[in-house]
């Protein structure tokens, strides 16, 4: 008998604080697996966000820097420019990358910094209690949109990946989903490609991952994956954007 699947070296064997069925755990594991497969654990520096994944550095066994809310790409820019031989990536949620950090994100992308970004889109602010995010869908009920998001007063869901794909400095943008086993495998490939782009000095690569937040969607974990597949994927269609 041979072990064909187990915890990878870069992922610490500690319990995470995430809720049951949370997509963060899956994406943490995928990043750790990609880093080990590319054999870059010793030269990787992760930049962790503010949000649910704020203590991701406790779960990964490689160097990490905590950034101020939304400023992950500004911090990552500094690290990469000072230590160009290191592999630098940011891990950011939608409240971090698409709300408070929109300016930093757009300008880092426009400068074409040679960085990898893993962007977790779960349409709500999970850490602070499930408030409406820029990515919240029309009609979706959250703590601050109890009647559902209304496009007349709150605007439309922000498709930040499509927005960034317009910029000349951006090398690749891909959106994938963690709604199924196939989706998770595709997400891993996308993350791996984004890290490889950085290793080959190709430039700014972003992977948007549609991730479940069962607690604040008020659904069971299994229903959450169905919701990603049937509702969220219509507004944020997975696939290669650039």
């Amino acid at each position: 008998m041979k072990k064909i699947f187990g915890r990878t070296r870069s992922l610490r064997g500690v319990d995470t604080h995430y809720c049951q069925g949370c997509g963060h755990g899956v994406v943490h594991r995928l990043i750790a697996e990609v880093i080990d497969e590319l054999n870059i654990r010793e030269i990787t520096i992760g930049v962790t966000p503010v949000g649910c994944a704020v203590v991701a550095y406790d779960y990964w066994d490689f160097d990490c820097v905590e950034s101020a809310h939304g400023r992950g790409l500004a911090v990552a820019t500094a690290i990469k420019r000072l230590q160009p031989d290191k592999i630098v990536f940011t891990y950011q949620g939608d409240g971090d990358l698409a709300a408070i950090g929109t300016a930093e994100t757009i300008h880092a992308a426009n400068r074409g910094e040679n960085l990898t970004v893993v962007f977790i889109n779960n349409t709500v602010y999970g850490m602070t209690g499930g408030q409406m995010a820029p990515t919240t869908l029309i009609g979706q009920k959250t703590a601050t949109s109890p009647l559902g998001r209304n496009e007349k007063t709150e605007g439309y869901p922000l498709r930040i990946s499509e927005l960034l794909a317009q910029l000349q400095g951006v090398y690749s943008v891909e959106r994938s989903s963690t709604d199924s086993v196939q989706g998770i495998l595709k997400t891993k490939n996308a993350i791996k490609a984004a890290f490889k782009n950085q290793m080959e000095n190709k430039g700014f690569s972003l992977v948007e991952v549609l991730s479940a937040c069962p607690t604040y969607w008020v659904l069971s974990p299994v229903e959450s994956l169905d919701w990603i597949k049937n509702t969220m994927s219509k507004v944020f269609p997975p696939g290669r954007i650039k």
């Binding site: 699947f5 187990g6 995430y18 594991r29 998770i184 495998l185």
Partner: peptide
């Protein structure tokens, strides 16, 4: 069958698969 689907979808990395 050792397909590892359970391990791939597990958010908490609780499952090891042997084949």
């Amino acid at each position: 069958s050792g397909c590892a689907f359970c391990a791939i979808i597990c958010p908490d990395c609780c499952i090891e698969v042997y084949k």
